[in-house]
Amino acid sequence: MTFLQFAWSQRIEFGEKVLEHALLTGTAIAAAILVGVPVGILIARRPAWRGLALGVAGVLQTIPSVAMLALLMIPLGLGWPPAVTALVLYALLPIIVNTLAGINQVAPDILEAAEGLGFTARQRLWMVELPLASPVILAGIRTSAVIAVGIATLSALIGAGGLGEYIFRGLSTGNDRLILLGVAGASGMALALGAGIGQIERGLKRRLHL
C-alpha cells in the first residue's frame, strides 16, 4: 500500500483531525486578534506602555511549547483550555507588533490633515489609521496563524486532538506513515493558510489603493 493509498484509507478520520486542528487554531487566532489588536492600538497611543506590552509578549514567545503546555496544565487541566491558551499566548506578539507598526507607518501629512479637518480621535482611528494599517495587521495575523498551526500539533499531547494525534500515535507505535500523515496535514494547512491570508492582504492593498 502506497502512502497515498494509506492516506485515502484514513480520509474520514483525517478530515475529522483537520477540522479539530482548524477549530483549535481558528479559536486561538480569533482570541489573539481580539486581545492583540486593541493592545497594539493602546501602545500606539501610549508609548510608555510599549516596553511592558512588547516585553511580556516577547517573553511568552521564548517559552518552549512543551513547557508552556505543562505550565498551563497546572491551572487549566487537560484538553482544549490549556491548548487554546498556549496558542493565544504565542500568537499575540506578531499581532501586537504589526498593529503598532501599521498604525505608526501612517504618514504624518495624513494624520495632520485628519486632525486639522476636525476628526475626533475615534474617527481618526476608524476612518484613517485602522484602514491604512489593515494590510500590515493582516500580515501579523498571517504570521501568527502559520505559527499556531505548527504548535497546535503539540495539543495532542494534552488530549486536545488535532493532527498531532497522528504524529504521536505514529511515534509510539513506530508507524512512519502515521507521522508523515500528521506532518503533511499540518504543513499543508500552514502553507494554505499563509497563502490564503497573503492573497487577502494583496486584495486589501488593491482595494485601499496602497
Binding site: A107, I110, A113, G116, R207, H209, L210
Partner: peptide, 11 residues
C-alpha cells in the same frame, strides 16, 4: 484648511 502636505486619504 489647505495643508502644506496636502494630506489626502490614499484609500
Amino acid at each position: 484648511y489647505v495643508f502644506q502636505g496636502i494630506g489626502l486619504m490614499p484609500h
